[in-house]
Every structure is written in C-alpha cells, then in structure tokens.
Simulated assay, not measured.
Amino acid sequence: MLVSLAILGLAGVLFLVRGPLLMTAPACFSGRWHGCYDTFNGPLLMMLVGLPLPALLAWALASLRRAAGAAWAWRSSLAEVGLVYGTVPMVWLTLQPGPGAGVVPGRVSLVPLVDLVTMGPIGIGGNLLVFAALGFFAPMRFAALASVPRILALGAGCSLLVEVAQYVFQLDRVSSVDDVLVNAAGAVLAALASRRWWRTAARVPAERPQPVPALAD
C-alpha cells in the first residue's frame, strides 16, 4: 500500500507540473544549457527521459554480481543506481541560484511551520521528493541504515547541509527549517515504502548459522 501511495503521489506531482516540463523540452532536446539545466523543470524532464540508462546500468551491475556469485545482486544494484540517480538531480535543483545570487545576502528562517503554509502543494511535494530516493534505497543497500530513526537523521543531516550551502554560497535562496523538516519526512516516508525489502536485508547477518565450537577431548 505504501509503495502504491508513493507511486500515486509521484504521478500526481508529475501531472501538476506536466505543462512546465513540456515547455522546457525544446531547449533540452536541442542541447542548450540555458533554458534547460539552469531551470527547475529541465533537469526533471531529462531525468525522466533518461530512465532507460540507469535501468541498463543496474542490469549490468546485477549481471556482474550474479556471475561472481554475490548475494542480493539485483537488490544491491538497483539500490545503488536508484540512490544516485534519484538524489543527485534533486540536490542540483535545490542548489540552483536565484536571480540575486552573489548579491543578495543569505536569508534564514528558523521558525518551524512558518514557511510551510506558503509552499503550496507543488512546493511540499517537491521537498518531499528531494531525498525520497535516498530514504527508499539507502536502507536496502546498507543494513546499518535499516531503521526509521537513522533514515530520519540521514535525511535531516543531508537537508541541513543543503540549506547551509544555500546560505554560505549566497544562492538567493531562503535556508528554512521547514525545508529540513519536509525533506526528512520525505526520506522517512520513502523508507517506510521500501521497508518490506530493507528489513529482510537487515536480518540476513543475524540469521546466518553460527559455527559450532569443537568439544574438547
């Protein structure tokens, strides 16, 4: 059910932004940086168009691991590729400079829930997706991260680094505590959606049979 809700949520966000995505298509498909990769919609469009490439990479990695006899070949490969492909473009979007970058000093909003009411559905949905891939795939790949509190801490920590970068580099963006809260919530919700798989991976080391000590003569 959680996976279905996540898919429906992603489909809903894409439906809301389908117009802006298509507006950037001419610039992106003609190979122009300006009007494509320096916008919010261009990287999202290219991310969707390029989905066959990470799928092919995951298949290649899984094939190599299966040939080497590695356990969890498909799960590990999909998690690694999905984690990177789903997170890097979203972080790119959050670090895009505004029109006053380098001129306008950094701004900070530390009062919780103040900015949340001004984000709107698209803003909240976008912030939930920033580290969703990280929350979904990281506990599948790394058993040490297979717990909700750790994913919450990971999502909050990564989001905090992004907000600090926005402030330090004067990107004409507001470094808001609400962004950290929503980003972390998105990572946790995505982790819960993949819990069926990462809980199994986390139990594997504990379920391995232990050697029986030899009896002394």
Rank of each mutant, 00 (worst) to 15 (best):
L21H: 10
S77W: 04
V104Q: 13
V148S: 04
A27W: 08
R18L: 12
V13N: 09
S109Y: 01
L64R: 15
M90Q: 15
P205M: 07
G98T: 10
P105V: 06
A60T: 11
V177G: 10
V104T: 13
C36T: 08
V111F: 09
Q170K: 15
V212Y: 00
S159M: 09
I124E: 04
G42K: 12
G98K: 04
G12T: 00
V114S: 12
A184F: 02
C158H: 08
I151P: 05
A153G: 14
W92Q: 11
V81Y: 05
V114N: 10
G186T: 10
A214F: 04
D38K: 01
G12N: 01
V168S: 02
P211W: 01
F142C: 07
E163Q: 12
A201I: 00
P26S: 09
R65M: 13
A193I: 09
R196P: 00
P54N: 11
Q210N: 01
A27S: 15
V117Q: 12
G19K: 11
A101D: 09
Y167G: 07
L44H: 09
L83I: 02
L45V: 11
A62G: 13
C28K: 08
V117R: 15
A25P: 05
G35F: 06
R32Y: 05
R173V: 05
C28Q: 10
P99Q: 05
V111S: 11
R32H: 15
P89L: 07
V162A: 08
L56E: 00
F142R: 08
A191T: 01
F29T: 10
L5I: 10
V212T: 12
E80V: 08
L152H: 03
L215Q: 15
